[in-house]
């Protein structure tokens, strides 16, 4: 019964995706959208295959672009997770930590990552560390907020169980609060990962010579929509794959919350 349902879901997904690509192809082939503004799906696929080995017109193959972007996006995400998750948890559990960090966090939170670019260029120049910092700034916000919320939502009764057992604050935090908060933490990490890829294009505006964001920019300058869309699709697929990998970690560490 379950397998049947799964099969049906896959079939529906394939039909949905095929219809989308077909409509896209038709719209461009029939001239509803001019060829110089949008490439048909098949041309994008051909460009993708060609770009695996061909560095023209943007100076690098798609694999080189991907690896450059991936290392920047992943580094920014990892730093955001390593700082954001413990910070959010501490703010959720300890009122002093919240009092110290919350005001500054609330002021910094609404600043869009792109607004950081000028000051980051002055501080860190235009190298990889500047790009990682922009991604970090974007990705740290959901990590902090979700970890904070995860800890705040631990029902008081669970904490009281710990107290009545004579557990220390540290043990209550590590044995009760953190396990309960894990699903919210993973939700935050998924959002952080998405935000990291979103911020990537902004980060690669910083005088890049390689990377998917740079490739998209070159596609725009050269008016080559197939290059732009190829870059976009690779970003989308990479984000989905990393999100899937994160889902595997979630399944391992917070399987109790999965329906």
């Amino acid at each position: 019964m379950k397998i049947k349902g799964k099969k049906r879901t896959i079939i529906r997904a394939v039909i949905g995706l095929s219809s989308f690509f077909l409509i896209w192809e038709m719209i461009v082939r029939l001239g509803i959208i001019p060829r110089n503004r949008m490439s048909p799906f098949t041309e994008v696929i051909a460009t993708f295959i060609r770009k695996i080995t061909d560095p023209t017109p943007d100076g690098a193959t798609i694999i080189e672009h991907f690896l450059t972007s991936f290392s920047v996006a992943f580094s920014g995400f990892v730093v955001a997770a390593l700082i954001g998750v413990p910070l959010g948890m501490m703010m959720g559990y300890n009122r002093y930590a919240k009092a110290y960090a919350n005001t500054i966090f609330e002021i910094l939170r609404p600043i869009p990552p792109i607004a950081w670019i000028p000051i980051i260029m002055l501080l860190l120049g235009i190298g990889t560390s500047a790009k990682i910092f922009i991604i970090f700034v974007a990705a740290v916000v959901p990590a902090v907020i979700n970890s904070y919320t995860g800890i705040k939502r631990v029902p008081e009764v669970y904490i009281n169980v710990g107290k009545s057992l004579g557990m220390s604050h540290f043990k209550i935090f590590t044995k009760i609060c953190i396990p309960h908060a894990l699903p919210a933490v993973f939700t935050g990490l998924r959002l952080s990962l998405n935000t990291a890829w979103v911020a990537l294009v902004a980060a690669e505006l910083l005088a890049s010579t390689k990377g998917l964001g740079y490739m998209i920019q070159i596609g725009r300058v050269l008016a080559k929509p197939e290059i732009i869309i190829t870059g976009m699709i690779v970003i989308g697929c990479s984000g989905a794959v990393m999100s899937g990998l994160l889902g595997l970690f979630e399944k391992r560490f917070a399987k109790w919350s999965r329906k």
Binding site: P155, V157, Y158, N160, V161, K163, S164, L165, G166, I176, P179, H180, L182, A254, W256, S257
Partner: peptide, 21 residues
């Protein structure tokens, strides 16, 4: 009475089985 020293257990009104265990 000291929960660190004595064995005091509490069954609460609300459900208190830990959902992650």
């Amino acid at each position: 009475a000291d929960p660190k020293k004595h064995n005091i257990a509490f069954a609460f009104q609300e459900s208190s089985a830990f959902p992650w265990l």
